[in-house]
């Protein structure tokens, strides 16, 4: 390991050692009265400020859900916008309580920086090409000029994919997403590659969005999820079961509108989810009705998805792999019982 990195890391570890001792985050959060949530500096559909200056997005909804679970008030959140570079330091130094910044869950990050508590969006890198290129699969892209961002894993994934398939290509890389889109729109390259959620967001900026098609290949796994500091398993549980609650609620058919009616349901599964039966919430330091509060304030996972990134939004992302397991997707939350 590079010596500077080693020093930085050991300093980071020394600094977190103090925090790793006790389950204290939930108490600290309860006493200060809000959740300090790390989000992006503006990522369409995941965390971005709207016209009114309010933060919205799928990641923001997770922060709001945690606040609803703890305080029964989804607005008890303060947002710390973080760049990709500073996000982990902000978490390890205690500046934020939870990081929901569209972060890919990888083994090294899990080991070095924090505890991932689940996946709130399954992403993967894809390709977009103009329809008139007549390409229907990425393996036909031999000799293509590929537009992408500099210095991200995106660039490395492309290199891996093209090498593995024995294809030639040239990279046309830019610093900012806007520049990449402009170059692709101007025809400086044949292919635009980034995460598929990003492709959807940028596609609306093309002069003729309908003349472009996203190829079916997904060349990398990008499970995006929130994470918390190492060593505080109670706090990790709060995050994990907030997320599970949103997914389980969708599976059980509980949504924002019917959540109060569902409280009288006789279905034992729904009773456990909503906390009318048992003391599941109390076991992790929350109100037994925490999940009912989450769904009442933020909605279930499907509602949050549809509101922020779904087909009705500007991003127009189909559920795809982010559907429930019972509907052919990957979302499979552990049961609340």
């Amino acid at each position: 390991m590079h010596p500077v990195k080693t020093i930085a890391l050991s300093v980071a570890l020394a600094a977190t050692a103090g925090l790793a001792q006790a389950d204290e985050t939930l108490d600290a959060v309860k006493s200060k009265g809000f959740v300090q949530c790390g989000v992006s500096q503006g990522l369409p559909g995941f965390s971005n400020p709207d016209d009114q200056g309010n933060w919205t997005g799928l990641d923001v909804d997770f922060c709001r859900a945690m606040a609803a679970a703890i305080f029964n008030d989804a607005d008890a959140v303060k947002y710390t916008p973080l760049s990709a570079k500073v996000r982990f330091t902000a978490l390890t130094s205690g500046e934020i309580d939870v990081l929901a910044r569209n972060t890919t869950w990888t083994m090294s990050r899990d080991a070095d920086f924090g505890e991932f508590i689940g996946v709130n969006y399954y992403d993967g890198q894809g390709f977009m090409v103009p329809t008139n290129l007549g390409v229907s699969s990425a393996v036909e892209l031999d000799g293509a000029a590929v537009c992408t961002n500099t210095g991200t894993t995106t660039e490395l994934n492309v290199a891996d994919y093209f090498r593995a398939n024995g294809l030639n290509y040239t990279v046309v890389a830019f610093e900012k997403a806007d520049e990449v889109v402009a170059a692709y729109d101007a025809g400086r390259c044949d292919v635009y590659t980034t995460d598929r959620s990003g492709l959807a967001a940028q596609r609306t900026k093309l002069s003729k969005p309908d003349d472009h098609v996203v190829l079916p290949e997904i060349i990398s796994k990008e499970p995006l999820g929130p994470l918390v500091r190492h060593g505080d398993s109670q706090w990790a549980d709060v995050g994990r079961w907030t997320l599970n609650c949103m997914i389980n609620a969708e599976e059980a058919g509980i949504n924002m509108e019917n959540v109060s009616d569902m409280a009288t349901s006789n279905d034992p599964n729904i009773k456990r989810i909503l906390g009318t039966d048992g003391d599941l919430g109390a076991k992790i330091g929350l109100d037994n009705a925490f999940c009912a509060n989450v769904v009442a304030a933020v909605g279930n996972y499907g509602e949050s998805y549809d509101r922020n990134v779904g087909p009705e939004t500007a991003l127009k992302l189909e559920r795809g792999v982010n559907a429930l397991w019972s509907q052919g997707g990957l979302l499979y939350a552990a049961p609340q019982r």
């Binding site: 500096q41 503006g42 369409p44 400020p49 967001a201 609306t204 900026k205 500007a314």
Partner: peptide, 16 residues
């Protein structure tokens, strides 16, 4: 500049 950049990311204003 930062606030303008964050605003640009709003998907509702996603125009070239």
């Amino acid at each position: 500049l930062g606030v303008v950049q964050a605003s640009i990311a709003d998907p509702n204003w996603s125009v070239r």
